[in-house]
């Protein structure tokens, strides 16, 4: 174990822990923009800088490993000045259109601007101009709001293993783009959207929908597959407007394209709301209650089994069920109906 002192407080951390992790353990608030504990440290935003005894210059706490006897200061006048300048520089190349920005209320840059009280900007100057029109149905990019934290690039590479985006150009013109600057052509998992600290990346489906005011958050489980990712529905009235996932969930906040963007069926007019039974070959589907449906299925299964034997029946189960449901399903077929004709869609 490693012992160090942060802001006059002692803390013990495991070997390999960073100074930032140690400080967070002490509930010391160090601002970050490019840091995500689920990804490798990057050290680009320079907000988490701290002063460490024996080091000539401030260093980023997210990248610096804690060592024994280290004496760390996280909140000196000098650090405040440097952080404020950094935030001010970011804002000097930012549209600052928070009134109409999709990220408002959920934006780290906005919080930082507020925390450092930046109303006037000493560094007003040229701004990047990305004339981009994306046509993909899932992800909207407003790249002049990009702070180049690199979270999207890293999540795509480190978590998703796709590497659909990377950096191009140098200096002030540096930017994150797909190869050759084309529109996104990826699997649209939206992990990049989930980690973006500003309004630079957002879901197309959320556009124009309420941001924070009047929005209800409901924790639930994704129904798409047996993984059962934890999701949080954002809704207003009876409309689900957005889905995200918390980083402390068992799926660490990561979702797939279906879980994140495939929620329009919830309020769709085409959605089935009751069971349907087709009573005769070639006949129409008729609406039924669940009891009617269950009774009908049980009756037909019994009839077929009596007439043709249990092996005339077969069951195909779904990946959208949980492990427990799939277990019960095969048990019903093997133990109750008496056939081994049972399989699962994931095998095809």
């Amino acid at each position: 174990m490693i012992n160090l002192t942060i802001d006059d407080k002692q803390i013990e951390v495991a070997e390999g822990a960073t100074v930032l992790e140690a400080a967070r353990k002490l509930n010391i608030d160090i601002p970050t923009l490019c840091h995500d504990p689920r990804l490798k440290p990057y050290g680009a935003c320079r907000l988490c800088i701290v002063e460490i005894g024996g080091m000539a210059k401030p260093v980023t706490s997210c990248t610096t490993p804690a060592t024994n006897g280290m004496v760390v200061k996280t909140n000196t006048a000098k650090l405040y000045r440097l952080r404020k300048t950094t935030v001010e520089l970011l804002l000097s190349d930012h549209p600052n259109d928070c009134m109409t920005c999709i990220g408002t209320g959920d934006c780290k840059l906005q919080e930082l601007a507020y925390a450092y009280g930046i109303r006037e900007n000493r560094f007003q100057g040229a701004m990047r101009d990305h004339n981009r029109v994306d046509v993909n149905p899932f992800i909207t990019r407003e790249q002049n709001k990009c702070v180049m934290c690199g979270l999207c690039v890293r999540v795509c590479e480190e978590v998703q293993g796709v590497g659909a985006i990377g950096y191009a150009e140098r200096g002030f013109e540096a930017k994150v783009i797909p190869p050759f600057g084309h529109d996104l052509k990826c699997e649209f998992c939206g992990q990049c959207v989930s980690v973006c600290p500003t309004g630079a990346l957002s879901g197309r489906l959320w556009s124009g929908k309420p941001r924070m005011a009047g929005v209800k958050f409901t924790d639930t489980t994704c129904t798409y597959c047996g993984c059962g990712c934890n999701i949080t529905l954002r809704s207003t009235g009876d409309q689900v407007i957005r889905i995200d996932s918390k980083p402390d969930s068992h799926n660490r906040g990561w979702l797939c394209v279906k879980g994140r963007f495939g929620f329009e069926f919830i309020n769709s007019a085409d959605r089935l709301t009751t069971p349907l039974i087709r009573r005769q070959k070639g006949g129409e589907f008729e609406q039924a209650t669940w009891d009617e449906a269950y009774d009908y299925v049980a009756k037909r299964l019994s009839e077929i089994k009596d007439k043709h034997g249990a092996d005339a029946l077969g069951g195909l189960c779904s990946a959208r069920c949980t492990n427990e449901e799939n277990y019960l399903f095969q048990k019903m077929f093997r133990a109750r109906i008496g056939t081994n004709n049972v399989d699962h869609c994931a095998r095809y």
């Binding site: 935003c45 320079r46 520089l89």
Partner: peptide
């Protein structure tokens, strides 16, 4: 273009 002070600071 990686870190903020260099990317935007030198420009300013």
């Amino acid at each position: 273009g990686k870190c903020v002070p260099c990317r935007i600071g030198t420009k300013r």
